[in-house]
């Protein structure tokens, strides 16, 4: 579905609601400007596109909250030309590695491609 027009969601959704609507369908969505250039974070009044869900790890850290389990946090450069926050699951990964999107309990995550 890369770069295709997204299927019509209910009218009047706020960007956060629209994003959640797509996520519930296992879709990675984003807004684009009049020239088709990705705009992130998503904004009202723009067209939406779907990402193919492939990209690379731009950077990554492991957060170690006091008294909690360590958690991974990553910024993913999607092939369509935008960078989103996520986390990397499913084994060792490093900055620059290719990854692909998965939904884990409704949350967008990335695994080594």
């Amino acid at each position: 579905m890369s770069d295709a027009e997204a299927p019509a969601p209910p009218a009047g959704l706020a960007p956060a609601e629209r994003l959640a609507w797509h996520a519930a369908r296992g879709e990675v969505a984003y807004t684009v400007d009049a020239g088709g250039v990705p705009v992130w974070p998503p904004q009202v009044g723009l067209d939406w596109r779907l990402s193919a869900g492939r990209g690379r790890i731009y950077t990554m850290t492991v957060m170690r909250p006091r008294g909690g389990e360590p958690r991974n946090l990553a910024l993913i450069d999607l092939d369509e030309g935008l960078r989103i926050m996520s986390r990397v699951e499913g084994g060792p990964a490093a900055i620059g590695d290719a990854v692909s999107a998965r939904f884990d309990d409704g949350v967008l995550v990335f695994v080594p491609a």
């Binding site: 956060a16 974070p41 990554m60 958690r71 990553a74 910024l75 989103i84 926050m85 986390r87 900055i95």
Partner: peptide, 26 residues
């Protein structure tokens, strides 16, 4: 924390600077 960041519970601001450091190292 916008809804598209909230599921990852970023420890901010430290995590952003840690990711800058990690990228600088790489």
């Amino acid at each position: 924390i916008p809804s598209w960041e909230a599921p990852y519970t970023p420890m901010l601001p430290i995590a952003l600077y840690a990711m800058a450091a990690a990228r600088h190292m790489a």
